[in-house]
């Protein structure tokens, strides 16, 4: 048998005995080789130290999930574009009912004035996550002149406000102009002289406004607050007491058997992690009908 025949036979025998494993090896090798080539020639991405606008400034451990980030970016972009192009109604429809009610008194004309005061040229925006509390995501929305196009020639304006993105099922709604939301409370307390219902509170980024319904159960006037001292109405945060900010120029007085609504505003940051424990009416004064003297002066505290 000549060499050529021997070689042919040897190859044929090899293929017969080891054909299948050889094919497997070649297939795996080809995959590894291709993957290797891809990884080697892929341009190396340089990771730069960069500030993350999606990382909350107040606590970077409470990041917004990627899927929520996308939804939030999308709705804010839509809101901004409507505001920038003065499509007031479309922008108005993206904000929460609470915000429409509390900030704009359910009147779109008020919203238009607010938009016109900020968006008076072609603007651009930026969005920075600020803090996240449960399903409420607080952002800084910065609206400014298009400084990349102008280079800041002629000066420029920046307007920054806190907006809240509030999750509603699978979508988000916007609360703007530093307002967050309304929170229902519904706690009631009564004694022989007063019945107080703490109905709800309006949360803004820097303050809380408690909405009370007070019923005078007596035949005399009752003064809740008149700024004789600034500690007449306080909010107990556990580790500190905050005085109401809005009693300086007003008298909160209820006539005999009258039911009246009153609001008391306290400075409190939405994301400060303090939980109010008590609303304190420290100087409830029952007034004599004869000589306007104070017949009784006592504290009425409502646990929240």
């Amino acid at each position: 048998m000549n060499f050529k025949t021997k070689m042919t036979l040897a190859i044929r025998d090899f293929i017969k005995d080891y054909g299948k494993p050889t094919l497997i090896v070649l297939a795996v090798w080809f995959i590894i080789f291709t993957l290797n080539q891809y990884l080697i020639t892929k341009p190396k991405e340089i990771k730069l130290l960069k500030h993350d606008l999606n990382s909350p400034i107040m606590d970077d451990t409470k990041k917004v999930s990627v899927s929520n980030q996308r939804k939030i970016q999308a709705i804010v972009k839509e809101y901004f574009e409507y505001c920038n192009s003065k499509q007031y109604e479309k922008a108005y429809n993206l904000i929460t009912e609470d915000c429409k009610h509390y900030v704009y008194l359910n009147d779109i004309e008020n919203f238009k004035k607010y938009i016109d005061s900020i968006y008076n040229n072609n603007k651009v925006y930026y969005l920075q996550n600020y803090s996240n509390v449960d399903d409420t995501y607080v952002y800084i929305l910065g609206i400014m002149d298009d400084i990349e196009s102008t280079g800041t020639t002629g000066g420029y304006k920046v307007y920054e406000e806190r907006i809240a993105l509030i999750k509603n099922n699978d979508t988000f709604e916007i609360a703007c102009d530093n307002y967050i939301k309304n929170e229902r409370i519904g706690i009631e307390k009564e004694d022989a002289f007063l019945k107080v219902n703490v109905a709800s509170k309006e949360l803004s980024y820097t303050r809380e406004e408690y909405n009370l319904t007070i019923t005078n159960l007596t035949d005399n006037d009752i003064i809740i607050a008149n700024f004789d001292t600034n500690k007449e109405v306080e909010l107990n945060l556990g580790n500190q007491l905050r005085s109401a900010m809005n009693i300086a120029n007003s008298t909160f007085r209820v006539k005999p058997h009258e039911t009246k609504t009153m609001s008391f505003i306290f400075r409190k940051y939405f994301d400060d992690e303090n939980t109010p424990t008590q609303l304190r009416l420290n100087a409830v004064r029952i007034i004599s009908n004869y000589d306007n003297s104070i017949m009784r002066n006592y504290s009425f505290n409502i646990d929240l």
């Binding site: 420029y156 304006k157 920046v158 307007y159 920054e160 406000e161 307002y179």
Partner: peptide, 9 residues
């Protein structure tokens, strides 16, 4: 430059 950053209503 005009920067307006109101933090409350």
């Amino acid at each position: 430059i005009e920067v307006d950053t109101p933090t409350s209503l």
